[in-house]
Design a binder for these strands. Sequence first.
RNA 1: CGGGGUGUGGCGCAGUUGGUUAGCGCACCUGCUUUGGGAGCAGGGGGUCGUGCGUUCGAGUCGCACCACCCCGACCA
Length: 491
Amino acid sequence: MAKEITSRNENYSQWYNDIVVKAGLADYSAVRGCMVIKPYGYAIWEKMRDQLDRMFKETGHQNAYFPLFIPKSFFSREADHVEGFAKECAVVTHYRLKNDPNGKGVVVDDDAKLEEELIVRPTSETIIWNTYKSWIQSYRDLPILINQWANVVRWEMRTRLFLRTAEFLWQEGHTAHETKKEAVEEAERMINVYANFAREWMAMPVIIGRKSEAERFAGAIDTYTIEAMMQDGKALQAGTSHFLGQNFAKAFDVKFLNKDSNLEYVWATSWGVSTRLMGALVMTHSDDNGLVLPPKLAPVQVVFVPIYKSKEELDKVSQVIAPLREQLHARGISTKYDDRDNYKPGFKFAEYEMKGVPVRVAVGPKDIEKGTVEVARRDTLQKQFVPQNQLAETVVTLLDEIQENLYNRALDYRKANTVKVDTYEELKKVLSEKGGFVLAHWDGTAETEALIKEETKATIRCIPLDGEVEEGKCIITGKPSKQRAIFALAY
RNA sequence: CGGGGUGUGGCGCAGUUGGUUAGCGCACCUGCUUUGGGAGCAGGGGGUCGUGCGUUCGAGUCGCACCACCCCGACCA
């Protein structure tokens, strides 16, 4: 294991890359823009996925699976949608290779050209709405509440591990409803599911809001978002939920017979979160010693490190540790016992800090004598001695405390880096000097938004749903505004 | 896609005006001693020097082309 990571102060981007690679979350791959998610990183993703999946099921959704490939013609149906994704689509043009007649290797067989090219899905609205058309005839067929776990491909120019890769894993929910009201409620319900997940499981504070027109999903009427603040003050969109209106129903001619025997277009939503959440997790909690994981998502919550000189001593320590682990397992806590003999305790301490294990328990000869163990918490790096017979209870409490502390710490950071401004000068000053979230009145026009983006690089992250209503004037045009928008540099 | 940078054992790097058998640290393997914050000693294994073409008696080193990756920008749910 590598010893050093770049400090956040020195180079934040490099720090992030170091953590991802050195904590064993992911690696660069032989394919441009694509990463390998390593077992430890995938284990965290699995925990996220499993919990989200439970939450989707609790809100009435079912999983299904749609094709990776989408006929090119489907994409031209919804104008905004095409424009949004056309520039980053991978296209399949042939279905066969052959041996290179001139030498080594294989070449594309020109005789095997597809009649219609296939797009590797960047998102699945089109193939799904094409399918829904055949599933929906009457209001009795509605609602359809489906989610799929899948990979998607967006040919990004510039990629970063987890935050933006050409291929990534995600879930996409696609629902069909009888009424506009029902669809809007669904979109709002799911953004709240995401917010709850982020707060309670990732210990990551998020702001729920509505996207401006410019930032909206291609093809949506309304896009809801959860926005989180990273430790460098930049915003990260962690999840989105879209009210699609009847756009896709019209594009794919999906109508149903309502209770009054009238034909109507179906109302739709879609919503998703991706492996980008892994990046958010890293940048919300981790420090210069490595990854910091919230207990609820840590693959290993407690690691036991034995301290010993001889084989006999190791045996004694192991005998103390075994029942302690059992007690923790009985309380639903995951543990690991690292009795590798080729590494010293100090090395192991550093390694588990790098990997973000929330709690470390060291047991040595002195502990056996005194009936104690040494308990160290990853979030604050504090250590304490605990009687062996109180370990289980202590750890249960400690894990909750760490989960809560991480959330509060992140929330404090966000509060400390969120400011209200009333003039454009102030906005520019804050963005260039301090960063973070800037709350300002905005007249609601795309022109004003574009101007600010042009001059400051900051975008409107969202208009908070629970933001206070107050009369104000747009910082650019002076036109009346009823609510402040959040401006920030973003990932 | 533009600017900058880097490609030499698994990782990080050195390698002089071209000159013999390409070095160093970490990691790895074996043995002994160690073990409460990244162990020590001894021995050992591992490299088509990113790829291709060229210059030369001779290329890790010089030239051209290509490729990959990183950083910054443009772009972007």
